[in-house]
């Protein structure tokens, strides 16, 4: 294969484009700007850490099933771990959202970063709701019978049936986590490509 042929390969061109867009030193940086040393910048990574615990505890629940998480003490513990990591996930994500909103974090060509965050937030809410109706207890029965009226009022009830445990469980453990993970990954990559949003510049004082 000649040099020109290698240059024209789609793999070569795609690799070069990726490296140009996100060089390794930007993907895994050694340092961050001074303004990042504030507690308000901690909540994004707190959300990521909580998401990792949510996924890990969810995998454990999937391994053993409802009989286990309802009856055994270890099952109760993992079930609680799943719930409380979700609580921390949303808590940290809301503080992260407020911080970024007041920083106007969509500045400097970061609109896509902001929008992927918005869609991830909405996807996570849907994942949490399908989790509530997938508990397989009286609580989930009560929530699903209440939720069906709201969903039916939107007209989506025929397709998205909250009383269908199988369908809700599949949305909760396959579709929505997959979407949340992919969107979160994209969000983090975009943060790395564009960098962390800088603070607003102080207004220049003009002496008279």
């Amino acid at each position: 294969m000649t040099y020109t042929e290698i240059e024209r390969q789609w793999t070569t061109r795609l690799r070069r484009r990726f490296v140009r867009l996100l060089p390794p030193e930007k993907l895994l940086p050694d340092t961050q700007p001074t303004y990042v040393s504030s507690w308000i910048y901690v909540f994004g990574v707190t959300t990521l850490a909580a998401l990792a615990v949510v996924i890990a505890s969810g995998c454990l629940l999937a391994l053993r099933g409802p009989q286990w998480w309802h009856t055994s003490s270890v099952g109760h513990f993992v079930n609680s771990l799943h719930l409380w990591s979700v609580e921390i996930f949303f808590f940290a994500m809301v503080v992260h959202l407020w911080g970024k909103y007041f920083m106007a974090a969509w500045r400097g060509g970061r609109a896509l970063t902001w929008m992927t965050g918005v869609v991830t937030f909405l996807t996570s809410i849907a994942a949490a709701f399908t989790g509530y109706v997938s508990q397989s207890n009286f609580d989930s029965q009560w929530i699903s019978t209440q939720a069906k009226d709201g969903i039916n009022a939107t007209g989506a009830g025929a397709y998205f049936n909250v009383l269908n445990l199988g369908q809700m469980l599949m949305w909760h453990i396959v579709l929505l986590p997959l979407a949340a993970i992919v969107l979160t990954g994209l969000h983090v990559i975009l943060v790395r490509v564009k960098g962390v949003v800088p603070p607003f510049e102080e207004p220049v004082k003009v002496s008279q």
């Binding site: 504030s38 507690w39 308000i40 901690v42 909540f43 808590f91 809301v94 503080v95 407020w98 911080g99």
Partner: peptide, 8 residues
Amino acid sequence: MVFTFIAA
């Protein structure tokens, strides 16, 4: 959450 935000 509001308290955490202000503290942060």
